[in-house]
């Protein structure tokens, strides 16, 4: 499955270009692993950073399918206040029932790699080619899964919201569409809100009747022992044109009062949601369940279930969500 017809993203040499050398002093760069060359190894973290200079934020443009688009450096420089990047994935079923990826366009910090899959689904890994988002950045990812296709998307490392220079907020918008008979598993790593950062995240999933979705979101408030930044997230899931879930969470300094009080987070520093949409749930809805002290599974008002979990840290949060997912599938 690793080298199917849709594998434009694999194997090509990454072009690594440092950017914003003067405007972002001190910006952390991901660790250099020149040997990964665009492919995630079994053990290593497939960061594509490599040989860049020390000052800037390196990014990687690994796809051959980007011809005809303005090059990322030009787009980045055109927007000195922040990075604007838009990545796109389209998954389609070929006549043999395999999933191909006619579009796999990363941009700027959002580099995409088709990675080895064990099942029939195509697997894409979002590779953190720059650190960020930083304040002022505007990132977007669209994933579109066509009828009968199966796509699984993960990420190589946590996304870390960092402060910008002028206090501006960053945006991160994820738009997912799943057609009839298609399946999307959207299982990125955690989003970590770092002290002084401000980030607005929206995730919107539109699932057509007969489509399937597994979607995980995890927010971690601050690195270990650190105060969080301001994080606003909104998660909207629609099925067959009806909104099944619309949920906002705002936390950190500047959030409405009471965000860390006994009704909302009560000192928990990791909060996560796992949404599972399955047409079968219309006939046999999962039952509500309490999953330990601070997690619960509940059926939504449609063929979907939501697990909400709070935990002291990211690791324990992941354990709860993994256990809950295995229970549902």
């Amino acid at each position: 499955m690793d080298c199917g017809p849709g594998d434009e993203g694999d194997g090509s040499s990454p072009v690594t270009t440092p950017t914003r050398t003067s405007s972002t002093p001190g910006r952390p760069s991901p660790p250099a692993e020149p040997s990964t060359a665009g492919r995630s190894s079994a053990a290593g973290r497939p960061f594509i950073a490599g040989q860049s200079s020390t000052a800037g934020r390196p990014f990687t443009e690994g796809q051959s399918s980007t011809a005809g688009r303005p090059s990322a450096p030009a787009r980045l420089l055109a927007s000195p206040a922040g990075v604007h990047a838009h990545a796109r994935i389209a998954a389609r079923a070929d006549p043999h029932g395999r999933t191909v990826l006619p579009v796999l366009d990363g941009e700027g910090p959002l580099a995409l790699r088709r990675t080895r899959a064990t099942g029939p689904a195509a697997h894409v890994t979002l590779v953190g080619a720059m650190s960020g988002p930083l304040g002022g950045d505007s990132l977007a990812i669209d994933a579109d899964v066509g009828a009968g296709a199966r796509l699984s998307v993960g990420s190589a490392a946590a996304t870390i919201a960092l402060p910008g220079q002028d206090g501006a907020a960053a945006r991160y918008d994820v738009r997912l569409t799943v057609a009839d008979g298609a399946e999307l598993r959207w299982l990125p790593e955690q989003l970590i809100s770092v002290r002084g950062s401000a980030l607005r995240v929206t995730t919107r999933a539109d699932v057509a009747e007969g489509g399937r979705l597994v979607l995980r979101e995890e927010q971690v408030l601050g690195r270990t022992g650190e105060e969080p930044g301001l994080l606003h997230s909104r998660l909207t899931v629609r099925y067959a044109g009806r909104t099944l879930l619309d949920q906002e969470l705002t936390c950190g300094p500047g959030a409405p009062a009471g965000w860390d009080g006994p009704a909302v987070l009560a000192g928990h520093r990791a909060v996560g949601q796992l949404v599972v949409v399955r047409p079968e749930f219309a006939y046999e809805s999962p039952e509500s369940a309490v999953l330990g002290e601070s997690a619960a599974l509940t059926p939504l008002a449609g063929p979907a279930a939501l697990i909400t979990a709070l935990a002291p840290d990211a690791l324990r949060l992941r354990h709860i969500l993994d256990d809950a997912l295995s229970r549902l599938m």
């Binding site: 906002e248 969470l249 987070l265 509500s288 601070s294 997690a295 909400t308």
Partner: peptide
């Protein structure tokens, strides 16, 4: 109606499922 707020309180949701049982 998408213009309406959707602010959520995770502990209220989790607590409600437990309380109902």
């Amino acid at each position: 109606v998408d213009a309406l707020p959707a602010a959520s309180a995770p502990l209220l949701e989790v607590g409600a499922e437990g309380h109902a049982g």
